[in-house]
Nucleic acid binder design. Structure first.
Length: 560
DNA sequence: GCCGTTTTCGGCCCGACTGTTTTCAGTCG
Protein backbone atom coordinates (compact mmCIF):
# COMPACT_ATOMS: atom_id res chain seq x y z
CA UNK A 1 0.00 0.00 0.00
CA UNK A 2 1.46 3.28 -1.11
CA UNK A 3 1.08 5.35 2.03
CA UNK A 4 2.78 8.49 0.75
CA UNK A 5 -0.08 8.72 -1.75
CA UNK A 6 -2.71 8.67 0.98
CA UNK A 7 -0.96 11.32 3.04
CA UNK A 8 -0.34 13.65 0.14
CA UNK A 9 -3.98 13.17 -0.88
CA UNK A 10 -5.14 13.96 2.65
CA UNK A 11 -3.04 17.15 2.70
CA UNK A 12 -4.45 18.26 -0.66
CA UNK A 13 -7.99 17.51 0.47
CA UNK A 14 -7.44 19.57 3.60
CA UNK A 15 -6.04 22.34 1.46
CA UNK A 16 -9.07 22.17 -0.83
CA UNK A 17 -11.39 22.44 2.18
CA UNK A 18 -9.49 25.37 3.66
CA UNK A 19 -9.29 27.04 0.27
CA UNK A 20 -13.06 26.71 -0.10
CA UNK A 21 -13.65 28.04 3.42
CA UNK A 22 -11.62 31.13 2.71
CA UNK A 23 -13.65 31.88 -0.39
CA UNK A 24 -11.26 30.44 -2.94
CA UNK A 25 -12.34 29.85 -6.53
CA UNK A 26 -14.61 26.81 -6.74
CA UNK A 27 -12.90 25.45 -9.85
CA UNK A 28 -9.56 25.49 -8.15
CA UNK A 29 -11.10 23.76 -5.15
CA UNK A 30 -12.28 21.06 -7.51
CA UNK A 31 -8.83 20.78 -9.07
CA UNK A 32 -7.27 20.08 -5.67
CA UNK A 33 -9.97 17.56 -4.81
CA UNK A 34 -9.64 15.85 -8.14
CA UNK A 35 -5.87 15.66 -7.87
CA UNK A 36 -6.15 14.30 -4.32
CA UNK A 37 -8.50 11.56 -5.46
CA UNK A 38 -6.25 10.70 -8.38
CA UNK A 39 -3.14 10.56 -6.19
CA UNK A 40 -4.86 8.34 -3.62
CA UNK A 41 -5.96 6.01 -6.39
CA UNK A 42 -2.67 6.04 -8.30
CA UNK A 43 -1.24 2.52 -8.35
CA UNK A 44 2.39 3.58 -7.96
CA UNK A 45 4.00 5.04 -4.85
CA UNK A 46 4.46 8.76 -5.56
CA UNK A 47 7.40 8.86 -3.15
CA UNK A 48 9.27 7.05 -5.92
CA UNK A 49 7.41 8.12 -9.07
CA UNK A 50 6.98 11.52 -10.71
CA UNK A 51 3.70 12.87 -9.39
CA UNK A 52 3.24 14.81 -12.65
CA UNK A 53 2.29 11.50 -14.26
CA UNK A 54 -0.89 11.41 -12.18
CA UNK A 55 -3.82 12.70 -14.23
CA UNK A 56 -5.10 15.99 -12.85
CA UNK A 57 -1.73 16.95 -11.40
CA UNK A 58 -0.02 19.85 -13.13
CA UNK A 59 3.01 21.92 -12.26
CA UNK A 60 1.45 23.84 -9.34
CA UNK A 61 0.08 20.81 -7.52
CA UNK A 62 3.21 18.78 -8.26
CA UNK A 63 5.30 21.43 -6.48
CA UNK A 64 3.01 21.33 -3.46
CA UNK A 65 3.16 17.55 -3.32
CA UNK A 66 6.94 17.52 -3.63
CA UNK A 67 7.27 20.00 -0.79
CA UNK A 68 4.86 17.87 1.21
CA UNK A 69 6.91 14.73 0.59
CA UNK A 70 10.10 16.40 1.73
CA UNK A 71 8.83 18.14 4.87
CA UNK A 72 5.29 16.96 5.67
CA UNK A 73 3.49 20.11 4.60
CA UNK A 74 3.57 22.91 2.03
CA UNK A 75 3.67 26.65 2.41
CA UNK A 76 0.17 27.44 1.14
CA UNK A 77 -1.30 24.82 3.45
CA UNK A 78 0.58 26.27 6.43
CA UNK A 79 -0.76 29.72 5.56
CA UNK A 80 -4.38 28.63 5.44
CA UNK A 81 -4.06 26.52 8.58
CA UNK A 82 -2.91 29.66 10.36
CA UNK A 83 -5.94 31.60 9.12
CA UNK A 84 -8.69 29.08 9.86
CA UNK A 85 -9.06 27.37 13.26
CA UNK A 86 -9.18 23.59 13.07
CA UNK A 87 -12.64 23.60 14.65
CA UNK A 88 -14.07 25.65 11.78
CA UNK A 89 -12.88 23.01 9.34
CA UNK A 90 -14.56 20.40 11.53
CA UNK A 91 -17.77 22.42 11.31
CA UNK A 92 -17.95 21.56 7.62
CA UNK A 93 -17.99 17.86 8.55
CA UNK A 94 -21.43 18.39 10.06
CA UNK A 95 -23.90 17.12 7.45
CA UNK A 96 -25.74 19.94 5.59
CA UNK A 97 -23.20 22.45 6.88
CA UNK A 98 -20.93 23.62 4.11
CA UNK A 99 -18.10 26.13 3.80
CA UNK A 100 -20.32 29.21 3.44
CA UNK A 101 -22.26 28.49 6.60
CA UNK A 102 -19.16 27.51 8.56
CA UNK A 103 -17.37 30.74 7.72
CA UNK A 104 -20.50 32.79 8.46
CA UNK A 105 -20.86 31.17 11.89
CA UNK A 106 -17.20 31.79 12.66
CA UNK A 107 -16.96 35.37 11.49
CA UNK A 108 -20.34 36.67 12.62
CA UNK A 109 -20.90 34.67 15.79
CA UNK A 110 -17.44 33.46 16.78
CA UNK A 111 -18.53 29.82 16.59
CA UNK A 112 -15.34 27.85 16.05
CA UNK A 113 -16.22 24.17 16.54
CA UNK A 114 -19.16 21.73 16.33
CA UNK A 115 -19.36 21.74 20.14
CA UNK A 116 -19.56 25.56 20.19
CA UNK A 117 -22.31 25.39 17.58
CA UNK A 118 -24.32 22.91 19.64
CA UNK A 119 -23.95 25.16 22.67
CA UNK A 120 -25.00 28.24 20.68
CA UNK A 121 -28.12 26.51 19.37
CA UNK A 122 -29.06 25.26 22.83
CA UNK A 123 -28.56 28.75 24.25
CA UNK A 124 -30.85 30.16 21.56
CA UNK A 125 -28.11 32.32 20.08
CA UNK A 126 -29.14 31.38 16.53
CA UNK A 127 -32.78 32.31 16.99
CA UNK A 128 -33.65 35.02 14.49
CA UNK A 129 -30.36 34.72 12.61
CA UNK A 130 -31.06 34.83 8.88
CA UNK A 131 -31.13 31.36 7.36
CA UNK A 132 -31.50 29.47 10.63
CA UNK A 133 -35.05 28.28 11.18
CA UNK A 134 -36.14 25.61 13.68
CA UNK A 135 -35.68 22.73 11.23
CA UNK A 136 -32.15 23.78 10.37
CA UNK A 137 -31.27 24.00 14.06
CA UNK A 138 -32.70 20.54 14.75
CA UNK A 139 -30.85 19.04 11.78
CA UNK A 140 -27.57 20.59 12.87
CA UNK A 141 -27.94 19.31 16.44
CA UNK A 142 -28.68 15.82 15.14
CA UNK A 143 -25.69 15.96 12.81
CA UNK A 144 -23.35 17.09 15.58
CA UNK A 145 -24.56 14.32 17.86
CA UNK A 146 -23.98 11.74 15.13
CA UNK A 147 -20.50 13.11 14.58
CA UNK A 148 -19.60 12.97 18.24
CA UNK A 149 -20.78 9.40 18.48
CA UNK A 150 -18.55 8.30 15.65
CA UNK A 151 -15.60 10.49 16.69
CA UNK A 152 -12.68 8.67 18.28
CA UNK A 153 -13.40 5.71 16.03
CA UNK A 154 -12.19 5.33 12.47
CA UNK A 155 -13.38 2.94 9.79
CA UNK A 156 -11.35 -0.17 9.10
CA UNK A 157 -9.76 1.23 5.95
CA UNK A 158 -8.03 3.99 7.90
CA UNK A 159 -7.00 1.69 10.77
CA UNK A 160 -5.67 -1.03 8.48
CA UNK A 161 -3.60 1.38 6.40
CA UNK A 162 -2.14 2.84 9.59
CA UNK A 163 -1.36 -0.57 11.09
CA UNK A 164 0.32 -1.73 7.90
CA UNK A 165 2.34 1.45 7.71
CA UNK A 166 3.56 1.08 11.29
CA UNK A 167 4.37 -2.58 10.85
CA UNK A 168 6.39 -1.71 7.79
CA UNK A 169 8.27 1.08 9.59
CA UNK A 170 9.73 -1.02 12.41
CA UNK A 171 12.53 -3.49 11.73
CA UNK A 172 11.39 -6.30 14.02
CA UNK A 173 11.45 -10.06 14.10
CA UNK A 174 7.69 -10.39 14.33
CA UNK A 175 4.81 -7.91 14.46
CA UNK A 176 1.05 -8.27 14.06
CA UNK A 177 -2.14 -6.38 14.73
CA UNK A 178 -4.62 -7.69 17.27
CA UNK A 179 -7.79 -6.19 18.78
CA UNK A 180 -10.85 -5.13 16.84
CA UNK A 181 -8.73 -4.65 13.73
CA UNK A 182 -7.82 -8.34 13.64
CA UNK A 183 -11.47 -9.12 14.28
CA UNK A 184 -12.16 -7.00 11.18
CA UNK A 185 -14.73 -4.82 12.86
CA UNK A 186 -15.99 -2.07 10.56
CA UNK A 187 -14.92 0.66 12.99
CA UNK A 188 -11.83 0.66 15.18
CA UNK A 189 -11.26 2.62 18.40
CA UNK A 190 -7.51 2.07 18.73
CA UNK A 191 -4.91 -0.05 17.01
CA UNK A 192 -3.24 -2.82 19.05
CA UNK A 193 0.09 -4.09 17.82
CA UNK A 194 2.14 -6.96 19.24
CA UNK A 195 5.80 -7.47 18.51
CA UNK A 196 8.72 -9.70 19.32
CA UNK A 197 11.65 -7.30 19.44
CA UNK A 198 14.36 -5.89 21.71
CA UNK A 199 13.36 -3.03 24.08
CA UNK A 200 14.95 -0.47 21.75
CA UNK A 201 12.00 -0.86 19.40
CA UNK A 202 9.95 1.31 21.74
CA UNK A 203 12.17 4.33 21.29
CA UNK A 204 12.30 3.76 17.58
CA UNK A 205 8.50 3.63 17.52
CA UNK A 206 8.18 6.91 19.43
CA UNK A 207 10.51 8.63 16.97
CA UNK A 208 8.44 7.78 13.88
CA UNK A 209 7.05 10.71 11.87
CA UNK A 210 3.43 9.55 12.29
CA UNK A 211 3.62 9.95 16.09
CA UNK A 212 1.96 13.18 17.27
CA UNK A 213 1.93 12.54 21.02
CA UNK A 214 3.35 9.91 23.35
CA UNK A 215 0.70 8.89 25.87
CA UNK A 216 2.66 6.23 27.75
CA UNK A 217 6.22 4.99 27.34
CA UNK A 218 7.24 1.75 28.99
CA UNK A 219 9.42 -1.11 27.82
CA UNK A 220 6.50 -3.56 27.60
CA UNK A 221 3.90 -1.15 26.28
CA UNK A 222 4.03 2.18 24.49
CA UNK A 223 0.93 4.18 23.58
CA UNK A 224 0.90 7.04 21.15
CA UNK A 225 -1.57 9.23 19.36
CA UNK A 226 -0.77 9.42 15.67
CA UNK A 227 -0.94 12.49 13.47
CA UNK A 228 -4.27 11.16 12.20
CA UNK A 229 -5.62 11.16 15.79
CA UNK A 230 -5.76 7.39 16.24
CA UNK A 231 -4.31 5.83 19.40
CA UNK A 232 -1.86 3.00 18.83
CA UNK A 233 -0.60 0.62 21.54
CA UNK A 234 2.57 -1.30 20.80
CA UNK A 235 3.29 -4.23 23.11
CA UNK A 236 6.47 -6.28 23.31
CA UNK A 237 5.73 -9.90 24.05
CA UNK A 238 8.05 -12.88 24.62
CA UNK A 239 8.40 -15.08 21.54
CA UNK A 240 7.36 -18.12 23.56
CA UNK A 241 4.08 -16.38 24.51
CA UNK A 242 3.23 -15.14 21.02
CA UNK A 243 0.07 -17.21 20.54
CA UNK A 244 -1.25 -16.46 24.03
CA UNK A 245 -0.67 -12.73 23.59
CA UNK A 246 -2.33 -12.75 20.19
CA UNK A 247 -5.29 -14.60 21.63
CA UNK A 248 -5.56 -12.33 24.65
CA UNK A 249 -5.22 -9.01 22.83
CA UNK A 250 -7.46 -9.97 19.92
CA UNK A 251 -10.47 -10.22 22.22
CA UNK A 252 -13.28 -9.60 22.27
CA UNK A 253 -13.59 -9.25 26.01
CA UNK A 254 -16.75 -11.39 25.94
CA UNK A 255 -15.02 -14.10 23.93
CA UNK A 256 -12.02 -14.17 26.25
CA UNK A 257 -14.22 -14.43 29.34
CA UNK A 258 -15.82 -17.56 27.88
CA UNK A 259 -12.43 -19.04 26.98
CA UNK A 260 -10.96 -18.42 30.41
CA UNK A 261 -13.97 -20.06 32.05
CA UNK A 262 -13.24 -23.23 30.12
CA UNK A 263 -9.61 -23.14 31.24
CA UNK A 264 -10.62 -22.59 34.88
CA UNK A 265 -13.05 -25.55 34.75
CA UNK A 266 -10.13 -27.74 33.73
CA UNK A 267 -8.12 -26.42 36.67
CA UNK A 268 -5.89 -24.37 34.34
CA UNK A 269 -5.11 -20.71 33.98
CA UNK A 270 -5.12 -18.71 30.73
CA UNK A 271 -3.35 -15.36 30.52
CA UNK A 272 -1.55 -13.33 27.89
CA UNK A 273 1.55 -15.42 28.72
CA UNK A 274 0.06 -18.82 28.09
CA UNK A 275 -2.20 -21.64 29.17
CA UNK A 276 -0.82 -23.10 32.42
CA UNK A 277 -1.41 -25.98 34.78
CA UNK A 278 0.35 -24.65 37.86
CA UNK A 279 3.81 -23.80 36.57
CA UNK A 280 3.60 -26.14 33.61
CA UNK A 281 3.03 -24.56 30.19
CA UNK A 282 0.30 -26.39 28.29
CA UNK A 283 0.26 -24.07 25.27
CA UNK A 284 1.55 -20.56 24.58
CA UNK A 285 3.48 -20.25 21.33
CA UNK A 286 0.61 -20.70 18.96
CA UNK A 287 -3.00 -19.62 19.15
CA UNK A 288 -4.17 -22.85 17.52
CA UNK A 289 -2.48 -24.92 20.25
CA UNK A 290 -4.33 -22.99 22.94
CA UNK A 291 -7.75 -23.50 21.41
CA UNK A 292 -7.03 -27.16 20.72
CA UNK A 293 -5.75 -27.76 24.25
CA UNK A 294 -9.04 -26.35 25.52
CA UNK A 295 -10.84 -28.98 23.46
CA UNK A 296 -12.19 -26.68 20.81
CA UNK A 297 -11.67 -25.56 17.22
CA UNK A 298 -9.53 -22.50 16.53
CA UNK A 299 -11.98 -19.62 16.18
CA UNK A 300 -11.43 -17.21 13.27
CA UNK A 301 -11.02 -13.70 14.76
CA UNK A 302 -14.09 -12.12 13.11
CA UNK A 303 -16.27 -14.63 14.95
CA UNK A 304 -14.83 -13.82 18.38
CA UNK A 305 -17.67 -11.63 19.56
CA UNK A 306 -19.21 -13.80 22.27
CA UNK A 307 -22.15 -14.70 20.05
CA UNK A 308 -22.24 -18.47 20.44
CA UNK A 309 -18.95 -19.12 18.66
CA UNK A 310 -17.38 -20.73 21.73
CA UNK A 311 -20.05 -23.39 22.17
CA UNK A 312 -19.99 -24.05 18.42
CA UNK A 313 -16.21 -24.45 18.51
CA UNK A 314 -16.46 -26.83 21.49
CA UNK A 315 -18.85 -29.01 19.48
CA UNK A 316 -16.68 -28.74 16.38
CA UNK A 317 -19.50 -27.03 14.55
CA UNK A 318 -17.93 -23.76 13.38
CA UNK A 319 -18.94 -22.96 9.82
CA UNK A 320 -16.33 -23.19 7.09
CA UNK A 321 -16.20 -19.44 6.54
CA UNK A 322 -15.82 -17.84 3.15
CA UNK A 323 -12.27 -16.55 2.58
CA UNK A 324 -10.71 -13.96 0.31
CA UNK A 325 -9.20 -16.78 -1.75
CA UNK A 326 -12.68 -18.18 -2.39
CA UNK A 327 -13.72 -15.06 -4.33
CA UNK A 328 -13.69 -15.69 -8.08
CA UNK A 329 -14.42 -12.14 -9.13
CA UNK A 330 -15.82 -8.72 -8.43
CA UNK A 331 -19.31 -7.67 -9.53
CA UNK A 332 -19.33 -3.93 -8.77
CA UNK A 333 -16.59 -1.67 -10.15
CA UNK A 334 -16.29 1.67 -11.95
CA UNK A 335 -14.12 3.29 -14.61
CA UNK A 336 -13.45 6.78 -15.94
CA UNK A 337 -16.61 6.47 -18.01
CA UNK A 338 -18.40 7.65 -14.87
CA UNK A 339 -16.79 8.48 -11.53
CA UNK A 340 -13.87 6.04 -11.51
CA UNK A 341 -10.37 7.39 -11.99
CA UNK A 342 -8.82 4.48 -13.91
CA UNK A 343 -9.60 3.50 -17.48
CA UNK A 344 -11.49 0.38 -18.47
CA UNK A 345 -8.29 -1.15 -19.82
CA UNK A 346 -6.31 -0.43 -16.63
CA UNK A 347 -9.04 -1.73 -14.32
CA UNK A 348 -9.39 -4.93 -16.32
CA UNK A 349 -5.62 -5.45 -16.34
CA UNK A 350 -5.50 -4.97 -12.56
CA UNK A 351 -8.40 -7.40 -12.10
CA UNK A 352 -6.62 -9.97 -14.23
CA UNK A 353 -3.48 -9.57 -12.11
CA UNK A 354 -5.60 -10.51 -9.09
CA UNK A 355 -6.38 -13.81 -10.76
CA UNK A 356 -10.14 -13.44 -11.11
CA UNK A 357 -12.18 -15.88 -13.16
CA UNK A 358 -14.67 -13.12 -13.96
CA UNK A 359 -14.92 -9.36 -13.56
CA UNK A 360 -17.85 -6.99 -14.00
CA UNK A 361 -17.62 -3.34 -14.99
CA UNK A 362 -20.67 -1.55 -13.58
CA UNK A 363 -20.52 2.15 -14.31
CA UNK A 364 -23.41 4.37 -13.26
CA UNK A 365 -26.63 4.65 -15.28
CA UNK A 366 -28.25 7.87 -16.64
CA UNK A 367 -30.55 8.74 -13.74
CA UNK A 368 -27.59 9.83 -11.66
CA UNK A 369 -27.44 12.93 -13.82
CA UNK A 370 -24.05 14.16 -12.71
CA UNK A 371 -22.45 11.03 -14.20
CA UNK A 372 -23.61 12.00 -17.69
CA UNK A 373 -24.18 8.44 -18.75
CA UNK A 374 -26.09 7.64 -21.90
CA UNK A 375 -27.12 4.39 -23.52
CA UNK A 376 -24.77 5.19 -26.40
CA UNK A 377 -21.80 5.45 -24.03
CA UNK A 378 -22.77 2.21 -22.31
CA UNK A 379 -23.03 0.37 -25.62
CA UNK A 380 -19.69 1.76 -26.77
CA UNK A 381 -18.17 0.52 -23.52
CA UNK A 382 -19.71 -2.90 -24.13
CA UNK A 383 -18.07 -3.04 -27.55
CA UNK A 384 -14.73 -2.02 -26.04
CA UNK A 385 -15.10 -4.67 -23.38
CA UNK A 386 -15.77 -7.44 -25.88
CA UNK A 387 -12.68 -6.44 -27.86
CA UNK A 388 -10.72 -6.44 -24.61
CA UNK A 389 -12.04 -9.91 -23.82
CA UNK A 390 -9.81 -11.30 -26.59
CA UNK A 391 -6.74 -10.36 -24.53
CA UNK A 392 -7.98 -12.19 -21.42
CA UNK A 393 -8.72 -15.80 -22.25
CA UNK A 394 -8.71 -16.78 -18.56
CA UNK A 395 -11.04 -14.11 -17.23
CA UNK A 396 -14.61 -13.58 -18.35
CA UNK A 397 -15.43 -9.89 -18.70
CA UNK A 398 -18.99 -9.06 -17.75
CA UNK A 399 -20.65 -5.86 -18.87
CA UNK A 400 -22.71 -4.44 -16.06
CA UNK A 401 -24.27 -1.28 -14.75
CA UNK A 402 -25.00 0.26 -11.38
CA UNK A 403 -28.59 1.39 -11.62
CA UNK A 404 -30.15 4.10 -9.54
CA UNK A 405 -33.18 3.13 -7.46
CA UNK A 406 -35.52 6.12 -7.71
CA UNK A 407 -37.79 7.27 -4.86
CA UNK A 408 -40.57 5.02 -6.18
CA UNK A 409 -38.29 1.99 -6.63
CA UNK A 410 -38.00 2.28 -10.41
CA UNK A 411 -34.62 2.11 -12.17
CA UNK A 412 -32.97 3.88 -15.08
CA UNK A 413 -33.66 1.71 -18.09
CA UNK A 414 -36.55 -0.43 -19.40
CA UNK A 415 -36.30 -4.21 -19.28
CA UNK A 416 -35.22 -4.70 -22.89
CA UNK A 417 -32.22 -2.44 -22.33
CA UNK A 418 -31.40 -4.04 -18.97
CA UNK A 419 -31.42 -7.46 -20.65
CA UNK A 420 -28.33 -6.42 -22.59
CA UNK A 421 -26.25 -6.15 -19.41
CA UNK A 422 -24.69 -9.23 -17.82
CA UNK A 423 -24.70 -7.73 -14.32
CA UNK A 424 -27.25 -5.25 -12.92
CA UNK A 425 -26.54 -3.80 -9.50
CA UNK A 426 -29.19 -1.35 -8.26
CA UNK A 427 -28.51 1.12 -5.48
CA UNK A 428 -30.07 4.03 -3.63
CA UNK A 429 -28.19 7.31 -4.17
CA UNK A 430 -30.71 9.93 -3.09
CA UNK A 431 -33.85 10.57 -1.02
CA UNK A 432 -32.23 9.00 2.03
CA UNK A 433 -34.79 10.43 4.44
CA UNK A 434 -37.88 8.67 3.14
CA UNK A 435 -40.14 7.14 5.76
CA UNK A 436 -39.68 3.51 6.71
CA UNK A 437 -42.82 2.59 4.72
CA UNK A 438 -41.75 4.43 1.57
CA UNK A 439 -38.21 3.10 1.77
CA UNK A 440 -39.42 -0.48 2.28
CA UNK A 441 -41.76 -0.20 -0.71
CA UNK A 442 -38.89 1.27 -2.70
CA UNK A 443 -36.51 -1.63 -2.03
CA UNK A 444 -39.24 -4.22 -2.54
CA UNK A 445 -40.10 -2.70 -5.91
CA UNK A 446 -36.42 -2.89 -6.89
CA UNK A 447 -36.18 -6.54 -5.80
CA UNK A 448 -39.31 -7.39 -7.74
CA UNK A 449 -37.97 -5.77 -10.90
CA UNK A 450 -36.78 -8.71 -13.05
CA UNK A 451 -34.04 -6.44 -14.43
CA UNK A 452 -32.38 -6.06 -11.02
CA UNK A 453 -30.02 -8.78 -9.78
CA UNK A 454 -28.09 -7.28 -6.89
CA UNK A 455 -28.99 -4.50 -4.42
CA UNK A 456 -25.82 -2.38 -4.01
CA UNK A 457 -24.70 -0.96 -0.63
CA UNK A 458 -28.23 -1.50 0.73
CA UNK A 459 -28.29 0.77 3.80
CA UNK A 460 -26.32 3.53 2.00
CA UNK A 461 -24.62 4.48 5.25
CA UNK A 462 -21.26 6.27 5.20
CA UNK A 463 -19.42 5.61 8.43
CA UNK A 464 -18.86 8.86 10.33
CA UNK A 465 -20.89 10.84 7.80
CA UNK A 466 -24.35 9.44 7.27
CA UNK A 467 -26.50 6.92 9.08
CA UNK A 468 -28.30 4.03 7.39
CA UNK A 469 -31.66 4.56 5.71
CA UNK A 470 -34.70 3.30 7.54
CA UNK A 471 -36.45 0.25 6.08
CA UNK A 472 -38.21 -2.87 7.25
CA UNK A 473 -35.29 -5.06 6.28
CA UNK A 474 -37.01 -8.25 7.24
CA UNK A 475 -39.73 -7.51 4.68
CA UNK A 476 -37.14 -6.54 2.06
CA UNK A 477 -35.07 -9.69 2.64
CA UNK A 478 -38.12 -11.94 2.35
CA UNK A 479 -38.81 -10.50 -1.09
CA UNK A 480 -35.13 -10.66 -2.05
CA UNK A 481 -35.02 -14.36 -1.14
CA UNK A 482 -38.22 -15.07 -3.07
CA UNK A 483 -37.09 -13.20 -6.20
CA UNK A 484 -33.47 -14.39 -6.13
CA UNK A 485 -32.14 -10.85 -5.67
CA UNK A 486 -28.71 -10.83 -4.03
CA UNK A 487 -27.71 -8.31 -1.38
CA UNK A 488 -24.33 -6.72 -1.77
CA UNK A 489 -21.68 -6.62 0.90
CA UNK A 490 -20.05 -3.44 -0.33
CA UNK A 491 -16.44 -3.69 0.85
CA UNK A 492 -15.56 -0.03 0.43
CA UNK A 493 -14.44 0.54 4.02
CA UNK A 494 -16.44 3.67 4.83
CA UNK A 495 -19.54 1.87 3.58
CA UNK A 496 -19.07 -1.69 4.92
CA UNK A 497 -22.63 -2.21 3.80
CA UNK A 498 -24.49 -4.50 4.58
CA UNK A 499 -23.34 -4.50 8.18
CA UNK A 500 -22.97 -7.95 9.73
CA UNK A 501 -26.17 -7.94 11.80
CA UNK A 502 -28.22 -7.34 8.65
CA UNK A 503 -26.19 -9.98 6.80
CA UNK A 504 -27.20 -12.49 9.46
CA UNK A 505 -30.84 -11.45 9.20
CA UNK A 506 -30.80 -11.64 5.40
CA UNK A 507 -29.13 -15.03 5.45
CA UNK A 508 -31.74 -16.26 7.88
CA UNK A 509 -34.32 -15.50 5.19
CA UNK A 510 -32.32 -17.32 2.53
CA UNK A 511 -30.79 -14.31 0.76
CA UNK A 512 -27.54 -14.69 -1.23
CA UNK A 513 -24.72 -12.16 -1.18
CA UNK A 514 -22.17 -10.61 -3.49
CA UNK A 515 -18.93 -9.36 -1.87
CA UNK A 516 -17.86 -6.46 -4.08
CA UNK A 517 -15.20 -3.78 -3.92
CA UNK A 518 -17.21 -0.90 -5.48
CA UNK A 519 -13.79 0.15 -6.82
CA UNK A 520 -13.29 3.61 -8.27
CA UNK A 521 -9.50 3.13 -8.60
CA UNK A 522 -7.09 0.24 -8.92
CA UNK A 523 -6.02 0.06 -5.26
CA UNK A 524 -9.69 -0.22 -4.23
CA UNK A 525 -9.86 -3.72 -5.72
CA UNK A 526 -8.05 -4.93 -2.59
CA UNK A 527 -10.89 -3.69 -0.37
CA UNK A 528 -12.75 -6.95 -0.87
CA UNK A 529 -10.86 -8.27 2.16
CA UNK A 530 -12.94 -5.95 4.36
CA UNK A 531 -16.16 -7.33 2.91
CA UNK A 532 -14.89 -10.84 3.60
CA UNK A 533 -14.41 -9.79 7.24
CA UNK A 534 -18.07 -8.78 7.46
CA UNK A 535 -19.15 -12.01 5.78
CA UNK A 536 -17.04 -14.06 8.18
CA UNK A 537 -18.42 -12.32 11.25
CA UNK A 538 -21.91 -13.10 9.93
CA UNK A 539 -20.91 -16.75 9.48
CA UNK A 540 -21.22 -16.90 5.68
CA UNK A 541 -19.83 -19.80 3.68
CA UNK A 542 -19.23 -20.12 -0.06
CA UNK A 543 -22.78 -21.46 -0.23
CA UNK A 544 -24.05 -17.95 0.54
CA UNK A 545 -21.74 -15.85 -1.65
CA UNK A 546 -22.49 -15.83 -5.38
CA UNK A 547 -19.10 -14.51 -6.47
CA UNK A 548 -17.34 -17.53 -5.00
CA UNK A 549 -19.22 -19.67 -7.47
CA UNK A 550 -17.91 -20.84 -10.83
CA UNK A 551 -18.98 -18.65 -13.76
CA UNK A 552 -21.71 -21.01 -15.01
CA UNK A 553 -23.41 -21.19 -11.66
CA UNK A 554 -23.14 -17.44 -11.19
CA UNK A 555 -24.69 -16.73 -14.60
CA UNK A 556 -27.47 -19.20 -13.89
CA UNK A 557 -28.23 -17.36 -10.64
CA UNK A 558 -28.16 -13.98 -12.34
CA UNK A 559 -30.81 -15.18 -14.81
CA UNK A 560 -33.15 -15.33 -11.80
C1' DG B 1 -5.37 24.86 -11.08
C1' DC B 2 -5.92 21.64 -15.03
C1' DC B 3 -6.58 20.72 -19.74
C1' DG B 4 -6.65 20.65 -25.05
C1' DT B 5 -8.95 16.14 -32.63
C1' DT B 6 -13.34 22.73 -29.54
C1' DT B 7 -5.74 23.47 -27.75
C1' DT B 8 -2.51 28.21 -24.75
C1' DC B 9 -7.78 30.77 -23.28
C1' DG B 10 -11.90 29.74 -21.53
C1' DG B 11 -14.19 26.22 -20.03
C1' DC B 12 -14.54 23.20 -15.99
C1' DC B 13 -20.42 17.50 -13.82
C1' DC B 14 -25.32 19.54 -13.39
C1' DG B 15 -29.70 19.00 -11.52
C1' DA B 16 -32.49 18.48 -7.37
C1' DC B 17 -33.57 19.03 -2.78
C1' DT B 18 -34.05 21.58 1.68
C1' DG B 19 -35.35 25.13 4.41
C1' DT B 20 -35.70 29.22 4.00
C1' DT B 21 -36.95 32.60 1.34
C1' DT B 22 -41.28 35.70 -1.13
C1' DT B 23 -37.22 34.34 -5.52
C1' DC B 24 -33.05 31.75 -3.60
C1' DA B 25 -28.52 30.18 -1.44
C1' DG B 26 -26.29 26.37 0.09
C1' DT B 27 -25.44 21.58 -0.02
C1' DC B 28 -25.23 17.15 -1.99
C1' DG B 29 -24.35 13.25 -5.02
Amino acid sequence: MARANDEAAAALTEYADLFALTGGDAFRVRSYQKAAKAIAGFPEDIAHADVRRVPGVGEAIAKKVEEFLSRGSFRQLDDLRARVPDGVLRLTRVPTLGPKTAMFLYQELGIDSPAALAAAISAGRLAGVKGFGPKTEANLLKGIEQMEQSARRVHIGVAMALAERIMGSLPVERIAYAGSLRRMRDTIGDVDLLTVAPPSVMEEFRRQPYVAEVIAAGDKKTSVRTTGGVQVDLRRVPAESWGAALQYFTGSKEHNVRIREIAVKKGWKLSEYGLFEGERVIAAESEEDIYHALGMQWVPPPLREGGGEVSAALKGELPELVTLEDLQGDLHTHTTLTDGIASLEDMVAAASARGYAYYAVTDHAPDLVMQRMTLEKALAQRARLSRLQLDYPNMRLLHGTELNIGPDGSVDWPLDVLDGFDVRVASVHSHFTQSREEMTRRFIAACENPGVQIIGHPTTRKIGKRGPVDADWEAVFRVAARTGTAMEIDSYPDRSDLPDDLVRLARHHGVKFSIDSDSHAIPHLAHQRFGVGIAQRAGLTTHDVINTWPLDRLLEFLKR
